[in-house]
Design a protein around this nucleic acid. Structure first.
Lengths: 194, 194
DNA sequence: CTCAGATGTCTAGCAGTGCTAGGATCGGCC
DNA sequence: GGCCGATCCTAGCACTGCTAGACATCTGAG
């Protein structure tokens, strides 16, 4: 009876333990260092236990990604909340997005760079992912409408620019010192004439 | 004497054979399918031969990337050449860049997505890579100057947007039908007021 | 023409990967 | 107490990138 509940609770805790261990390991040493052996050692269980919780290593990475989607959605919501002005809100959103990616490069990679089977444009899309994109859409769409542009296309383009900035910055392929200049320029371009 | 030259020539041919084999295999089945064993089987030599030409697998991928940089530079130069008008040139450049990425996703990944030790902003940067970025800069800088924006930052931002569009499209994370809408909108934003 | 030495290539193997079959061990129920 | 099912681990498979050492082949001197 109660023992059953206790075991289910312990199992759920171990489930989360695996996810956070994978995340911490990836964040500390990169996804290349995340092996099932090191992971099982870290959670102090043998390898097969991992496979009783997840279908495979990819599923663990996907779980980390979903956790990231939730955090990103709340981060974007907060960034936008304090700014009633559309332009200031967009600006805060952009900096929030890029700061999110900068602070958790491994999680960001799991979400958007590594190959996954997470669906993006379908009904199987995780709800937190939809929520995160919804924040982007909410910030961009009004400005797009004001200039007579397609709101969806504008949102996708804005996201693409942020994603490009995030990944190229992470790979140190952009001049570090010009970060603010680039982001401010992006905001200027999108909000010009409004 | 002559035999020495013949062997050097054969060695150079085999060097290229390895690169093209890796590229074809990656393009056909993805980089995950490119293993040293399959590669050695494909070039009809044993594994250690690969290591007499390249330091390791990563070096082979990097060689494919450098080949890609050369092709990208010429593709961008051609795209821009036919359009004296700055705006039309930028537009052709953008479509050329994205078509390049769409047609060779594996090569594009080797160039810009997979982790490599290729240096980007230093003097050790491969010349073809500098040339490709030079084409971008040449197309964007005049328009940036016309609006009083930092040319370097504008080039980096434009590249980031293209890179984001390329990678998110490749991962089927953007609506396929709206491709032209997004690209045209990007050109509109960058060239607005000029 | 012969034969040491250099050059080139291959076989076999190492340590590590994701993943799994089979046996041992522990819990709760009759 | 004795059984049974759930839980977990040991051991192993087929694969990975990479390399040491044996083998062959070709070169050039005597």
């Amino acid at each position: 009876m109660a023992a059953q509940q206790r075991r289910e609770r312990e199992r759920a805790e171990r489930h989360r333990l695996i996810i956070t261990a994978a995340r911490e390991l990836a964040e500390a040493e990169g996804w290349g260092a995340v092996t099932t052996r090191r992971l099982s050692e870290r959670v102090e269980y043998s390898q097969p236990v991992l496979y009783s919780h997840f279908k495979g290593k990819d599923a663990i990475v996907a779980a980390v990604a979903v956790e990231g989607f939730e955090e990103l959605a709340t981060a974007l919501r907060r960034a936008r909340a304090d700014h009633p002005d559309a332009r200031a809100g967009l600006r805060a959103l952009a900096y929030g997005y890029l700061e999110f990616a900068r602070a958790r490069p491994a999680v960001y990679a799991a979400m958007f760079v590594r190959e996954t089977d997470i669906e993006f444009g379908t009904e199987a899309t995780p709800a937190p992912l939809k929520a995160a994109f919804g924040e982007l859409h909410g910030a961009v769409a009004p400005l797009a409408a004001a200039r007579g542009a397609d709101p969806e296309a504008c949102t996708e383009l804005f996201w693409s620019a942020l994603h490009g900035l995030a990944t190229l910055t992470e790979g140190s392929r952009l001049r570090p010192g010009a970060h603010r200049t680039r982001v401010d320029l992006l905001i200027d371009l999108v909000t010009a004439g409004t």
